[in-house]
Amino acid sequence: MVESNRGHLLPIYVLADESGSMMNHIDDLNDGLRSLHQALLGEPMAAAKVRLSVLGFSDDVIERVHLVDLRSANEFPLLRTRGMTSYAAAFEDLITRIPVDIAGLKAEGYQVHRPAVFFLTDGVPNMGEDWYDARRRLTDRTLTLGAPNIIACGISDADAEIISQVATQPEFGFVANEGVDVGPAIAKFCTALTKSVIASGRSLTSASPQLVVDKPENFTLAIDVI
């Protein structure tokens, strides 16, 4: 019989835009994720409490990494640019993915905290696409088991108002400051992601476990840009 209390885990999903417009910057993002991996190897206690998935989205979603324990992970598979920018496809994927993942972790005997999604895009969603309903169902705690917190970061052509609508709290939506180059912005996003993962992992078994979100340098709260 599997023990019901092997540990506490925070599932984290990096949901990254792989659309064609990311072509010149996807290497920066892959480099950033490698840095995150290296940083977590130096924080084994925080890393033990996190399971990381990396998902690339464009017209659909491709799972690059599935709920990996970063202490034992090898090289990350690379994100690759392709297709358009369908937010709806991304959110629909999470609606089916997250409940299955949570059930799997619980079946392994873990106590699971509310998942966190770090959403990164460089553009606006496909013209005419209704992604709002998928986003609403994904974050409705009465509809989706493990409805996640979404931290949304927009770079380049991303729209501050849309980023603000993707994030589940006003303080979880960020856009890169005007004039900031995309490459450095992605690097700052990955640095903030790493800090957030480590701080959330450290916090997980404290008296006040919380999702810690570190604002990327040279980003502004999307709500302040609208």
């Binding site: 506490h8 949570i102 619980k106 699971v112 905290h113 705690r141 088991l145 493990g146 409805a147 008296a207």
Partner: peptide, 12 residues
């Protein structure tokens, strides 16, 4: 919580 996730609510 109602969804079986660990609740983080502390009222100290």
């Amino acid at each position: 919580g109602a969804d079986g996730l660990v609740s983080c609510a502390v009222d100290p």
